[in-house]
């Protein structure tokens, strides 16, 4: 699809570090993910107690989206034209395995509704939508690898058909202690072209700066 859209911001969270537009903004000691996530939350001055109820995948998506959306979607206001298109490899398997553990022993059988609800990968989209009041288009996909061409085309078609004014594309992968979240904002105006090469550079964190 012919594209005249642009990428205006991107954020990467991996290996206990946070990069915004290519610059490292935060790094912690190599601690477990939940500790690292809490440290990011505090460091960026976030205030949203529901964060602590989320599973790890939702925390990862939430933190990245929080950084992408901070200037353009004020919490509490309606932001209806910003679509969310997320994908990953491991779906919700990290939480699925935890939930399965809770029903494995028939003598100690107490399935938790608060864990079960997170056994769907799109719940992280729900969490971000609630936080920023995004009554907007959204979809969650599972791919073996980051689908740069698919992501590009899907974002372009949402913008071309008027289903969205802006699109946040994200790869939010988390399984056990391995995590990697890459998100970028696609808009109709800007300087950095929205094309497959640039998207791949962002994904590999090799685009120098934005």
């Amino acid at each position: 699809m012919e594209s005249s859209n642009y990428i205006s911001k991107y954020c990467i969270i991996e290996e206990h570090s946070v990069f915004v537009n290519g610059r490292k903004q935060f790094a912690s000691e190599p601690v477990p993910f939940t500790e690292f996530a809490k440290a990011v939350y505090k460091d960026f001055g976030m205030d949203y107690p529901k964060f602590f109820k989320m599973d790890s995948l939702s925390k990862l998506a939430f933190l990245t989206a929080e950084i992408i959306l901070e200037d353009i979607a004020k919490p509490g206001e309606e932001n209806n034209n910003i679509a969310l298109v997320f994908a990953n490899r491991s779906s919700s398997l990290d939480t699925d395995a935890k939930y399965q553990d809770s029903i494995q022993d028939k003598k100690d059988y107490f399935p938790s509704p608060a864990v079960f609800v997170y056994t769907l990968p799109n719940i992280c989209i729900g969490e971000v939508s609630i936080r920023h009041q995004l009554k907007s288009e959204s979809a969650f996909f599972v791919f073996d690898e980051f689908p740069s061409e698919f992501m590009k085309n899907y974002a372009d078609v949402l913008l071309a058909t008027g289903k969205a004014e802006k699109v946040v594309c994200g790869w939010t992968e988390l399984y056990r202690e391995k995590y990697r979240s890459v998100m970028y904002l696609v808009e109709k105006q800007g300087k950095t072209e929205h094309n497959k090469e640039i998207i791949n550079q962002i994904y590999t964190n090799s685009l120098w700066t934005l």
């Binding site: 969310l84 609800v117 719940i123 729900g126 969490e127 009554k135 907007s136 288009e137």
Partner: peptide
Amino acid sequence: GAVNDANHI
């Protein structure tokens, strides 16, 4: 159309 409620999970 596939629009989120942004209300509850």
